[in-house]
């Protein structure tokens, strides 16, 4: 929707630049979902789902989602059915598009329970950016930091120590669209996917919001002018 409004502007001013760098959203880091007029980058969110399914899903559930919801990311019903069929639920049966995302077996990382990721972007200060910084924030502990047994150093995590290990690495998944699966790319994609799951209507909300604001700006101006005119005549 936003494209329709801004396409002419973009075409005039930014054509060359946008065309040349359309895929490079990592340096500098830029999320299409960020900002007032942001919308979900469906391609990135699809790749993010692949990362979730291949890596995150072994510990983290997403109980607000059904497999059919993936159609909102641009997957066809057949593709969704294929994805669901490849998932073996805990009772041994294959999932269907109407199944909720598979709940991983209950587990604890040294007492820390992996949180459900459905709304994680809404639940953490910093949202999408924080998820990216967290997933790319693992590393060796700086001098002077003593880690608790079983914990890992993470620069973005409040307190610096987290029981979740670094799970993303280059080529942890293979992207169907040929994008090179670097750690940063995987983190950015899964952050976009989680942004979508926390607010599936983000794109629609921004599009509806912009139209409503434009409408009410005009209505308010007309109503104000009418009021002034009536009050000058009668007030």
């Amino acid at each position: 929707m936003m494209r329709r409004f801004f396409a002419p502007l973009l075409a005039v001013g930014l054509l060359a630049g946008v065309a040349a760098h359309a895929e490079d959203t990592l340096s500098p880091l830029r999320f299409q979902s960020a900002g007032t007029f942001g919308s979900i980058d469906l391609a990135a969110a699809q790749r993010g789902f692949a990362v979730y399914q291949g890596v995150c899903a072994s510990c983290h559930g997403m109980d607000a989602l059904h497999y059919r919801d993936l159609q909102a990311l641009g997957l066809t019903p057949a593709q969704v059915a294929g994805i669901a069929a490849s998932v073996k639920l805990s009772d041994g049966s294959a999932a269907t598009p109407d199944s909720r995302f598979k709940e991983p077996a209950a587990m604890s990382m040294s007492g820390a329970v992996p949180p459900d990721l459905s709304s994680i972007v809404a639940q953490r200060a910093g949202g999408t950016d924080y998820i990216y910084r967290f997933l790319t924030g693992f590393g060796p502990a700086p001098a002077g930091v003593t880690l608790l047994p079983g914990s890992n150093y993470n620069a973005a995590f409040p307190g610096g120590q987290v029981f979740m290990p670094a799970v993303l690495h280059d080529d942890a998944v293979t992207y169907a669209d040929g994008t090179k699966a670097t750690t940063a790319q995987e983190a950015a994609d899964v952050a976009e996917f989680l942004t979508w799951s926390a607010d599936p209507n983000l794109s629609a909300r921004h599009a509806v919001g912009l139209r409503a604001v434009i409408f009410f700006v005009f209505l308010a101006i007309v109503a104000m002018l009418t009021k002034r005119r009536i009050w000058r005549q009668e007030g």
Binding site: H206, V208, G209, L210, A212, V213, A220
Partner: peptide
């Protein structure tokens, strides 16, 4: 108008 700004 304020409502729409917040909503969107």
């Amino acid at each position: 108008l304020v409502f729409a700004v917040l909503l969107g």
